[in-house]
Design a protein around this nucleic acid. Structure first.
Lengths: 154, 154
DNA sequence: CTGGTAGTTGAAGTCAACTTGAAGTCAAAT
DNA sequence: ATTTGACTTCAAGTTGACTTCAACTACCAG
């Protein structure tokens, strides 16, 4: 065990649940930062674990790594995020989740109305209708959130 | 316009909303079948449009093309699916959507309990906790359905 | 018959998010 | 001092679902 509180990539991986390769990859992307030993090995601060928890949470919510990067940049560089930093991100995420949930419910309810009707019509079926799915802002459209959406493939 | 009711790949694409390349790709996978003209061009039956509507619906619900293929195989080869064929698939899909919705709600509610607390701890936070996410059958675990899940990356 | 649009193939490219592999170096315990 | 395990880099591979490309052929209106 090191006498400092710096962590190796292996320890970070074990304690965060990410693979070492993922941790290195994230560092390469600039999502994490690390100091180096004289021999060139990475040493992470303990706060990296929280950062990784944040990343996993964001990924669970459906953010891409690009979006994660943007979110992380909106946070202060080295200090622990304040309550309001965190609250803002949480609010965004909540809206995102609400959208996703609404989309799935619309899909499910459309499905319910289809049961037994064999109606998979291109024009009318809420489950398959590409226009409804693409027209994300249409009134009452049964759209999916991006990432769940499969509309026009062009 | 052809005098028969067979459709070219371009017409199928335009009317289904899929790209031509996707239609050809699906035919290559065996999800669609087509007859050929003497010159080797594809000609699709009108029922292909319904099949594509089915495929889009399944994709919207989150099925992979492999799963779509399996579902299509469970349907009768050429005849229109009966009510019970369709009802069974619908039921499966509904369960799947219910699972997805439940997962997202759990995530959202966990997020709500996190707002303002800055608690993104590896051990306790419902949003980021990999153990909870991985333990899909654990009691009350805030898991995501596969495909939405981002737990251990190993 | 000719021109233009639409079709054909197979191979290769794309994207995100990693993982894997090879060849080599560092750290720490004995 | 040696060994073992952990670490390094960079390139290439993986997966799923397509798209793009090039070179070529078919169809059909006029």
């Amino acid at each position: 065990m090191l006498s400092t509180d710096l962590l190796t990539v292996g320890e970070i991986a074990r304690r965060s649940g990410f693979a070492e390769s993922a941790v290195r990859y994230y560092e390469g992307l600039g999502l994490l930062s690390a100091t180096r030993t004289s021999g060139g090995q990475r040493r992470f601060e303990r706060s990296t674990l929280r950062r990784l928890a944040f990343i996993r949470a964001a990924r669970n919510i459906g953010l891409s790594l690009d979006e994660v990067a943007a979110a992380l940049e909106s946070l202060p560089a080295q200090r622990t995020p304040t309550r309001s930093d965190w609250t803002k991100l949480s609010g965004d995420w909540r809206n995102r989740l609400d959208d996703q949930i609404k989309a799935l419910e619309a899909l499910r309810d459309g499905l319910a109305s289809c049961i037994g009707c064999g109606c998979l019509s291109l024009d009318r079926c809420a489950i398959s209708n590409p226009a409804d799915l693409a027209r994300a802002d249409g009134p009452g459209a049964a759209y999916l959130p991006s990432g769940l959406r499969r509309a026009e493939s062009r």
